[in-house]
Amino acid sequence: MQGGRRSRAFWPLAAFFALFVAFLYGPTVTIVVLSFQGPEGGLTFPMRGFSTRWFANLFETQMVGDFGGSFLRSLMLGAIVTVVTVVVSFMAGLAFRRRFPGSTALFYLAVASLIVPSVLISLGIGLMFRLIGVDPAWWSSGLGAHLTWTLPFGLLIMFAVFNRFSPAYEEAARDLGATLWQTIRHVVVPILLPSLIGVGLFGFTLSYDEFARSLYTAGTFNTLPLEIYGMTTNVTTPVLYALGTVTTAVSFVVIGLAIGGVVLLQRRRGGG
């Protein structure tokens, strides 16, 4: 296998992989193209001209509900979720390096949080707020619901990261007289920064796109996925695709920033 010799299975497998990638991206590419549909155009091909009117439509509130507001709420919620996810997962990752009372239970609780169907968590939090007589809102119940989804991911990533992290760095720092806080601030965090960016990426994108967990927890004001879902039932113009294009573009920008940041960090490190 070494030395560039390819096995007979290589090309069929490569072809399968290419088909899989086409399957993953094909539909998204299609709606991006169709979102530039001309004013007369419909939800399918052919393209009848080319225009950006569907994007303009998006920002006229009366046309498609509250796009701007829901977009803003989703961005803010995503940002809060990102910060909380990174900080809490990092702390928990540090904690899980040793056994502590309840560590096994907490681990299984986190895994359960990943496996319990989203709609159940949404329903449960919605009912809980109803019973205690508090109105759900995106920044309270919504935030909590999203965290039950992002924190387990963050924790699992931190597990993988700390498994490969040598305690020698911390011991060295301590031997040189650093306090616990200084060790974390000047040694552990800088070394783990790329992974923390990864955790943040998960936190933001999972929250920004979350539908089921927002359903009964977002309260009076919709987050973006709820808004989009509402549109699918009553909008039959390419505005829907324009919205899809904008949302996906935001995701790509965030992913690009995160990956770019990691690559940059690694390059700087490689350069010494």
């Binding site: 900080v87 809490v88 997962s89 702390m91 928990a92 540090l94 904690a95 899980f96 390096r97 040793r98 502590f100 009372p101 309840g102 560590s103 907490l106 609780l109 986190a110 359960a112 949080s113 319990v116 159940l120 968590i121 329903l123 449960g124 939090i125 009912l127 809980m128 019973l131 909590g144 619901a145 965290l147 039950t148 924190l151 924790l155 616990l180």
Partner: peptide, 28 residues
């Protein structure tokens, strides 16, 4: 001391999962 520190570090995660996973399922 390490165990106490570990408990403290894990407590935010534990509290969030308690409030937004366990209690809601109990509510259901």
């Amino acid at each position: 001391r390490g165990r106490v520190a570990a408990l403290a570090l894990a407590s935010p995660l534990a509290l969030i999962l308690l409030a937004f996973l366990l209690v809601p399922i109990g509510t259901i």
